[in-house]
């Protein structure tokens, strides 16, 4: 059977092939060039919504970095901690993101600089199956501009056929970001304290319960994949010589049996991996059962965060001093 080399059969076809290849080269150059221009502006957007927070935390070395979800974002006031610890502090907690995001951000930070301390604010569902992993990974598309970081790329492409090829495009990384980029580029820090946004006193609304409390299954379903990620989070910091402290900030709702079970799991894991854990539930700190300190069931408002942060620093100092994590601070 003779193979028909159709493309080389006529001058017109050969010309077409050359044109197609040339066009693909032009397209590659446009993608690279325009992507580089957008990337240049993107890296200079430090303020605005969560997605530019990554640039901020990577823009200069911070001594203490707080990682976690919206609870981390809303509970820790960096300026209070910085004044007390005499260290630079950045709150990189992010709305709508959980452990996988915190892990990815930690990897980006460790590749860029070595902080003196990493705090990971824990959420019960960091290690449970209350949400499919794919869904959590889906929300991490916000990290596409950072796909050059190896671990970020691995997470972004995990289980997604063709994502690796798409991420080779520089422009694709900024998909659906141009408007927010333009908006954030011109923003100046107003009411932002190294990642913490001053929202003032907000009225309590009975919403946003812990995902595991909403799960009707009476038993906690631990997720081995997520547990491994948490272990990797701790191990990679330890390997880089950066101490990690796990912490749990208060919530207005009393800790249910499920939450207590997850907390004791965290404690066992902390003991096993020899990292300190600061557990501040509203049972151990009854003053945090006051609803005026919260904007909803699990998120503090600004007065809550201002009340909580000094108490947390006190606890942190005890732990740090006891373990000699930071030398004399």
């Amino acid at each position: 059977m003779a193979v028909n080399l159709f493309i080389f059969n006529s001058k017109q076809n050969r010309k077409f092939l050359v044109k197609v290849l040339a066009f693909l080269l032009v397209l590659g150059a446009v993608d690279w060039g325009l992507g580089a221009v957008i990337g240049h502006f993107f890296r200079r957007t430090l303020y605005g919504e969560n997605w530019s927070k990554e640039n901020w935390v990577l823009s200069r070395p911070y001594d203490v970095v707080i990682l976690g979800s919206s609870r981390a974002f809303r509970s820790y006031v960096p300026s209070i901690m910085a004044d007390s610890l005499k260290l630079s502090v950045f709150n990189a907690g992010a709305n709508g993101q959980y452990l996988l995001y915190a892990y990815a951000l930690e990897q980006m930070i460790l590749e860029t600089y070595k902080p003196k301390l990493i705090l990971l604010d824990l959420l019960p569902n960091y290690v449970t199956q209350s949400e499919p992993v794919e869904q959590e990974l889906g929300r991490m598309s916000a990290l596409a501009p950072y796909a050059d970081y190896k671990e970020v790329r691995r997470l972004l492409t995990q289980g997604k056929l063709g994502e690796e090829a798409k991420l080779r495009s520089q422009l694709y990384r900024y998909n659906s970001r141009l408007l927010s980029l333009a908006e954030n580029y011109f923003k100046r820090p107003q009411g932002i304290d190294n990642g913490f946004v001053h929202i003032g006193k907000t009225r309590f609304r009975d919403v946003n319960h812990f995902a595991d409390d909403l799960d009707t299954n009476p038993r906690v379903k631990f997720d081995p994949y997520r547990i491994e990620i948490l272990k990797k989070f701790i191990r990679s910091a330890q390997a880089a010589g950066v101490p990690v402290v796990l912490c749990f900030s208060p919530a207005v709702a009393p800790s249910s049996a499920k939450i207590l079970e997850i907390l004791s799991f965290y404690q066992e894991l902390a003991n096993e991996m020899q990292v300190p854990m600061i557990k501040m539930t509203s049972e151990s700190y009854p003053e945090f059962q006051e609803r005026t300190l919260y904007s909803d069931v699990i998120h503090m408002n600004e007065p809550g965060a201002r009340k909580y942060t000094p108490l947390f620093v006190k606890e942190l100092r005890l732990v740090v001093d006891k373990k000699g994590l930071l030398g004399n601070i």
Partner: peptide, 18 residues
């Protein structure tokens, strides 16, 4: 012509839903 085609590709990459 190429500028027109490349523009469509750029718009797809920047504004498309994948």
């Amino acid at each position: 012509r190429w500028a027109a085609y490349a523009s469509v590709v750029v718009v797809i990459l920047l504004m498309g839903i994948f």
